[in-house]
């Protein structure tokens, strides 16, 4: 909570020092100076900054983030419309990153000492060197243009629509009993999810691998081998539960990066989520929207940090007693 207060204050101050006048922005260009002055007073912009912040905070905690200057509608409505798309994208990307990263980490470790493992490590390093937006462009080129397997634009094919229940397309299409639409939504998500997830996975592979190496030097692994347990049951039954802890911490602390990555990836795929909203808001200096979205990014990071702490706590019995 205190973190949240500090972040909101910082964002608020940063936006207030910008040389733009919210009052002027919210009026048509033809407005007279008197009209702008009146608007300034109406918007409370003549009061001291800390008082403005208090007013903003007061309404923010009630869910009122003011009106979007560009869209002429409440910011909260706007954000809530876009939020599910981004959550869906980020969740799928994270799931892909975890499944792919853990599987690859285990594979490379199980093949340790062979050419396969070194090759896996090289591939991992290559992916690590490519940022998510570059991967997105590469996938568009490879799987969208050269070999057009997946659509590269939006969340659904033009002309299709789904009754809006939750905003999560994968959920809504299934709820509407439309498997065809579900697959269409899924294929639209494929490339952005691949780009975001793949960019995040090398860290998981690396951390899991080195954590497994360290775990295998522990004497309980040696003792398990002396009890005659098979390699497979040593890896899955003994080592993994200990070796996964750093991965949980990594996912929790680095999820913010993946979530932030949606900004550019959404732009590249014209994906109607928070990222695109944020970019538009920045271009048009839509201050209320920028504030609200920034706070969502911040909240997501904090929530995942706490989730990781809880996960480690659950997985590590030594912390529990």
């Amino acid at each position: 909570m205190p973190v949240f207060a500090v972040v909101s204050m910082l964002v608020f101050l940063a936006l207030r020092v910008l040389p733009v006048d919210p009052a002027q922005m919210s009026l048509p260009p033809s407005a007279t100076i008197e009209q702008v002055e009146a608007k300034r007073i109406e918007m409370g912009l003549t009061k001291p900054v800390w008082e403005q912040y208090a007013v903003w905070l007061g309404s923010a905690v009630r869910g009122d983030f003011g009106e979007s200057a560009q869209y002429r509608m409440p910011t909260s409505t706007l954000v809530l419309q876009r939020l599910p798309a981004t959550i869906e994208l980020a969740t799928c990307a994270l799931a892909f990153a975890i499944v792919f990263g853990v599987a690859m980490g285990l594979l490379i470790f199980a093949a340790r000492g062979t050419v396969l493992a070194s090759a896996g490590m090289v591939v991992t390093s290559v992916i690590m060197a490519l940022p998510d937006f570059l991967l997105a462009l590469l996938f568009i080129l490879l799987l969208g243009v050269l070999m057009p397997l997946f659509p590269v634009n939006g969340r659904l094919a033009p002309g299709l629509s789904v009754p809006d229940l939750t905003g999560f397309l994968l959920v809504d299409t299934l709820a509407a009993g439309e498997p065809r639409l579900f697959l269409n939504a899924l294929s639209h998500m494929a490339l952005p999810v691949l780009a975001l997830g793949l960019a995040f996975s090398p860290a998981i592979i690396r951390v899991l691998h080195s954590s497994l190496v360290a775990t295998y030097q522990q004497s309980y692994i040696r003792q398990a081998r002396l009890r005659g347990l098979s390699d497979r049951s040593i890896l899955f039954g003994q080592a993994l539960k200990n070796a996964i802890l750093p991965v949980v911490v990594l996912v929790g602390t680095q999820f913010g990066g993946l979530f932030g990555g949606t900004l550019l990836v959404e732009l590249i795929f014209s994906y109607p989520g928070l990222g695109n909203l944020m970019l538009r808001a920045m271009q048009t200096v839509d201050l209320n929207v920028i504030m609200a979205v920034a706070l969502i990014y911040c909240a997501t990071t904090l929530i995942f940090n706490s989730l990781a702490d809880a996960g480690v706590y659950l997985l590590n019995p030594r912390l529990r007693s």
């Binding site: 522990q218 004497s219 309980y220 040696r222 003792q223 398990a224 081998r225 002396l226 009890r227 005659g228 347990l229 003994q238 539960k241 200990n242 997985l315 590590n316 019995p317 030594r318």
Partner: peptide, 19 residues
């Protein structure tokens, strides 16, 4: 191992899986 030959380790504190 573990069937016909058993092993008792030197450091019991680290020889069992903490998780």
């Amino acid at each position: 191992l573990g069937r016909d030959i058993g092993f008792i380790p030197q450091e019991p504190m680290t020889a069992l899986n903490p998780a």
